[in-house]
């Protein structure tokens, strides 16, 4: 699956380095997933039957099947939960990101 490359953006170090007005190179991702994921999908490969429904429906195309089992690229997953909702085997659970509090 082809995904956008994460290009290291060189942050300005002085006023001289600032771009001319608010513009930047297009087609680059400065930070993966921009840190906005709240819920993280976890695949239970023992339940997965490789029907690939999640692979087709993932809006960001972050589910890889190259290794024979499905893997999620958490650098790009936004945590929308479509994969978990659509999985006929209930093999994908959504888990809250970060530290868990009772």
């Amino acid at each position: 699956m082809s995904k956008p490359q994460i290009v290291k953006y060189k942050m300005p170090e002085s006023q001289k380095d600032m771009p001319l007005g608010p513009s930047s190179e297009a087609g680059v991702i400065i930070e993966p997933n921009a840190g906005w994921r709240v819920m993280k999908p976890i695949i239970d490969n023992s339940k997965c039957v490789m029907c690939l429904k999640c692979w087709i429906l993932c809006p960001d195309g972050v589910i890889d099947r190259e290794k024979g089992t499905l893997e999620i690229d958490y650098n790009f997953c936004k945590g929308c939960g479509i994969c978990s909702y659509e999985c006929p085997q209930k093999a994908i659970t959504m888990v809250k990101e970060g530290k868990q509090y009772d």
Binding site: P12, Q15, M18, L20, G21, P22, S23, S24, E25, A26, G27
Partner: peptide, 28 residues
């Protein structure tokens, strides 16, 4: 123009700039 977009030099314009960077644009 040194501030133009074209197929060989794709750029993103008029983006927002956070509190960390906006003041430097104003100074510019």
């Amino acid at each position: 123009s040194k501030n133009a977009v074209d197929f060989n030099n794709p750029r993103s314009y008029c983006m927002s700039a956070s509190t960390e960077w906006n003041m430097e644009f104003r100074y510019q």
